[in-house]
Design a protein around this nucleic acid. Structure first.
Lengths: 219, 219
DNA sequence: ACAAAAGTGTTGCTGTTACACCCATGG
DNA sequence: CCATGGGTGTAACAGCAACACTTTTGT
């Protein structure tokens, strides 16, 4: 085969959400060869009349039945041996969604959420892609505030839940008193007036982000 | 023309350097139509036997006659109308180099350095690409320390020079006394024992980065 | 009453900010 | 000796880190 300047591109979508403080990703089970029965990232081949962004949105809608999301470009993977059949260049996009909302709209046993730390057997080079991209978003979450955090926590949340999320992303424990003080004293969150009431223990106060104070904030 | 799953990709390289505290980019003058006489980013079409990284290195070597550099992937541009002739997907890479070293190895009047703030007339969508990518690297430089800063300041530099670079990237002035104190007190830089001696005024102390202390540092 | 989970206060340290004067060199 | 640019000290403030006990709920 001679060299050619034509290439095949696929858009890969990494759909993330927070589930009780855990960082999870939404995958699908492959129904045909190659890698039949393995879990893979949802993807779509790019035709020459579509932008990568449009392609990524299409995948998102197919996977979640939702329209709006926080989405951005991540890395490109152009190794020659990504796909056993022919050379395919993978362009990774990240979407952050609300797990509760997604689950309401979607019930299927060939799609599932997985903890980033406990991934199933993955097809192609998707394990590697998930690892690299997850590292990237972790560092984005834990440095400056940006809209991604709002996408993970759009509605009411408790401070212990947010803390757990940070602890999982950072990979190290945080002092509960200092964490609470920071968010409340600096008015980074606003008390919604509601409380949680799940299981035993004292109910937690539900907060939402104070966008004015969070703007440009270092975390 | 029917839809097809084949696409043409080009690698675009944004070569940056610091020049007396100014953030500059290395461009070339286009010799043929379209956009003859305009300045453009160096680029290369990707064939189906090459990775994007290899392609980017090839461009870097062609432009600078240098081998080693700090390089990483940036954004992909997949709008349908990027190129007047046919659809070309642009994958942007960033390289950071030493301007002095580059100029020593390269003398050509169809290549030149431009201040990010004073760009010439640019072909294709390259003005837009430079703007978007520059914004990205600015925010990377001004948050956490990473190897990019070392690529901009590999060898001896004065603190006023480094300060000027930050001021340009941040777009706002910094107090000289506080800047100096921070880098010296926290031992983020090491005195090399040498001084500058250019023009009038008191000579500046030449420093280099103290990598141990800079590791993971917030700036 | 007890288990489970949430809430809270104090102290010391570290880094940031604001601010004005002196020092070394070239012409 | 003067113009140019580099180097320095102090005090107030803000945020962060380390530390243990109390409060509210379900069972």
């Amino acid at each position: 085969m001679e060299n050619s300047y034509y290439n095949v591109l696929e858009t890969l979508l990494l759909i993330y959400a927070s589930d009780e403080g855990k960082l999870k990703i939404y995958l699908q089970k492959k129904q045909d060869e190659p890698y039949k029965g393995y879990w893979v990232l949802p993807s779509a081949t790019l035709d020459n009349k579509t932008t990568l962004e449009e392609n990524a949105h299409k995948i998102y809608k197919d996977m979640t039945n939702l329209d709006e999301t926080y989405m951005f470009q991540s890395k490109i993977f152009s190794n020659l041996d990504r796909n056993p059949n022919n050379r395919v260049i993978g362009t990774a996009f990240v979407a952050v969604t609300d797990k509760t909302l997604t689950d309401m709209k979607q019930e299927s046993n060939d799609k599932a959420w997985f903890d980033i730390q406990e991934l199933p057997k993955l097809g192609f080079d998707h394990a590697n892609i998930i690892e690299e991209v997850s590292k990237e978003i972790s560092s984005q979450i834990t440095t400056n505030y940006n809209d991604m955090l709002l996408a993970f926590f759009p509605s009411d949340f408790t401070l212990p839940e947010l803390q757990l999320f940070y602890e999982n992303v950072l990979g190290k424990p945080i002092d509960r008193r200092n964490f609470h003080k920071k968010y409340v004293n600096q008015e980074l969150v606003i008390d919604t007036g509601f409380k949680t009431s799940k299981g035993s223990g004292r109910p937690g106060t539900l907060y939402r982000f104070n966008l004015d104070k969070m703007k440009g904030k270092r975390l």
